[in-house]
Amino acid sequence: MNVVLSAEDISRALTRISHEILERNHGSSNLVLLGIPTRGAHLALRVAEIMANIEGTTIPCGTLDITLHRDDLRLRPPRSIMPTLIPQSGIEGKDVVLIDDVLFSGRTIRSALDALGEVGRPKTVQLAVLVDRGHRELPIKADFVGKNLPSSLDQSIRVSLTEIDGRDEVVIENRRQS
């Protein structure tokens, strides 16, 4: 087990991402942040808070559950559906930033794009992730990345957040460790 991002690293990465998003989108006026449950939803709230401090205004922030759109439902035990909470402003014509903890195969994001299609038609959709670990199976790439973590398939990346796990850290560990 190896800690690759400490609490401070995570905090710095989120601050940087927040600035990058604002810069790319020329401010926050047309932005909507949507976190993918569970950890992505908390990351989105943190990014929204950082942005609010920078911009001096609240940023519309919600959650987008992708469970009903997954292509691997039949391969796993039944999962419960997580909340999808779209901000009052809606997403029609907005610049939507999807936020997730780890980008891996890209299948989650594909499902998220499908789920988003049920909700409305944004102007643009961008992707921000805390960790990009590679091994993409679909033509998907993140616009904003906290940290690139090239990893082997034998390894797993575990993101812990204070809101759920009691502390902030990202660790990398070998799956077949005894």
């Binding site: 559950d65 009903l68 759109h69 439902l73 419960s80 559906i81 997580m82 909340p83 999808t84 909470l85 779209i86 499908d114 049920e118 909700v119």
Partner: peptide, 20 residues
């Protein structure tokens, strides 16, 4: 009931088809 609650949130918008 909780699953239904989440589904009703999605459905409250437009009754679109889900691929599930």
């Amino acid at each position: 009931l909780d699953t239904a609650t989440e589904l009703s949130r999605i459905n409250d918008g437009q009754m679109k088809k889900l691929p599930t």
